[in-house]
Write a protein that binds this DNA or RNA. Structure first.
Lengths: 77, 77
DNA sequence: ATGTAGACTTACGTCGACA
DNA sequence: GTGTCGACGTAAGTCTACA
């Protein structure tokens, strides 16, 4: 399926954000990424770059390795 | 470290391409991504989006899940 | 707190050419 | 076969404002 990676990443980003108890607003301030863009990413209207994804992961205090493994599981199903 | 995700992804993309015995030229034709851009990505001068990464993985006939796990290992070290 | 809309700047990604 | 350069169109990412 096309777009699979983007869709699953969007899903997982939102899950992790909620796990951390953060609002889009707070994540935006912490990551330096615009809130409206984060909104678009989570609803999968926006195609994110690796650098921007990296910034979000850092702000979420999620280690990259763990995120990638969770993503691998999501993508496999 | 900043850019970690991008750097490690670039590394792994090149490794996988060589494992498959493909040239940048051939990968470009197969994926529909421009050769000069692939060159830039592998040398980490370019910041790729998830959709473009996905296209490259499909052309490389690498399952997304396996790639993400290898990437997780690379990023962890 | 989130979604959307528009206007804006920068970088992604394409293409042709040459070392 | 790869790196690089320059030019180009489109989409990434910012920002303000309103529901």
């Amino acid at each position: 399926m096309e777009l699979e990676l983007r869709v699953k990443t969007a899903e997982l980003l939102k899950v992790v954000r909620l796990e951390k108890g953060l609002s889009q607003e707070r994540l935006a301030r912490m990551s330096g990424i615009d809130r409206t863009f984060i909104s678009g990413v989570e609803r999968c209207c926006r195609n994110i770059t690796l650098d921007t994804l990296d910034k979000l992961l850092q702000a979420l205090e999620t280690d990259r390795s763990g995120f990638l493994i969770r993503l691998a599981v999501l993508v496999a199903t």
